[in-house]
Amino acid sequence: MPGLAVPTWDPETALLIGVILLEAVALYAGYGGLERLFGPYLMDLLVGGESSAQ
Rank of each mutant, 00 (worst) to 15 (best):
E50Q: 12
L45A: 14
A53L: 12
G32Y: 06
L42D: 04
S51K: 01
P11V: 09
D10V: 13
D44G: 06
T13L: 12
L4Q: 10
T13F: 15
S51Q: 01
E50Y: 14
S52D: 13
P11D: 08
D10G: 11
L22V: 08
D10Q: 11
P2Y: 03
L45P: 06
M43F: 09
W9M: 04
L16S: 12
P2R: 02
T13A: 15
I17N: 03
V19F: 09
D44Q: 05
G39F: 01
Y41F: 15
M43R: 13
G18W: 11
G33H: 01
P2N: 07
G32E: 08
I20V: 12
E23P: 00
E12S: 14
Y28D: 05
E50S: 09
L37Q: 09
P11I: 13
G33P: 00
Q54P: 04
L16M: 14
G18R: 12
L15H: 03
G32T: 14
A24N: 11
D10L: 15
V25N: 00
V6P: 02
A14I: 15
L15Q: 12
L15F: 03
V19M: 11
A5K: 03
I17E: 05
L4I: 11
V25C: 03
E35P: 04
G3N: 01
L4Y: 09
G49A: 08
E12R: 04
E23K: 02
P7G: 07
L4A: 15
M1G: 08
L16N: 00
V6Y: 06
D10I: 11
L46W: 09
I20T: 10
G18F: 11
T13M: 09
G39M: 06
I17L: 05
T13H: 12
M1D: 02
Y41D: 02
I20P: 00
T13C: 07
Q54K: 06
A24L: 11
D10F: 10
L34A: 13
A14V: 15
Y28M: 10
S52R: 09
A24H: 01
L21S: 04
Y31G: 01
W9A: 12
L21K: 03
P11W: 07
L21Q: 10
V25Y: 00
L42M: 10
L34N: 04
A14R: 00
A26K: 09
P7Y: 11
V19G: 04
G3P: 01
I17C: 09
D44V: 02
V6E: 03
G18K: 14
G39S: 07
D10Y: 10
A5D: 05
E50R: 09
Q54D: 04
D44E: 07
L46I: 09
L46R: 06
G18S: 15
T8S: 09
Q54M: 13
G33N: 00
G18E: 08
D44N: 02
Y28Q: 03
R36F: 09
A53Y: 12
A26D: 08
E35W: 14
Y31N: 10
L45E: 06
Y31I: 10
I17F: 15
R36N: 06
S51I: 00
L45D: 05
V47T: 02
P2L: 06
I20H: 05
V19P: 02
D44S: 12
W9Y: 15
M1C: 11
L27C: 08
S51R: 02
L45G: 02
L21A: 13
A24W: 07
E12F: 10
L22Y: 08
